[in-house]
Amino acid sequence: MTPDDDLLMKAAQWADAGKHVALATVVQTWGSSPRPVGSQLVINEDSDFEGSVSGGCIEGAVVTEALDVMQSGESKLLEFGVSDAMAWEVGLACGGEVKVFVEKLEDR
């Protein structure tokens, strides 16, 4: 388990380097969502990210929300799916639905 291939070690490493960090986790899925429950994306204040919460269709939106969560410190539960009003922008091409929990990694 090295920081290079392990997301949660990466998160700790970024925090140690003085960066704000957020974690995004798939907590629920319906239909044919591309990544299983528990999949994670870690994001830092420079918008660098590692991991995935979808096949690439919602990562951009999740990173934007994560930057907001880093600022406010308030966690968020995001929902993405074809029925979403934002579907044209960040919907899942596969027709699945997914809930993503975004939280800030608190400073030491």
Partner: peptide, 9 residues
């Protein structure tokens, strides 16, 4: 997530 929790995890 608290930092101490991440480290323990």
């Amino acid at each position: 997530m608290r930092r101490d929790l991440l480290d323990a995890l």
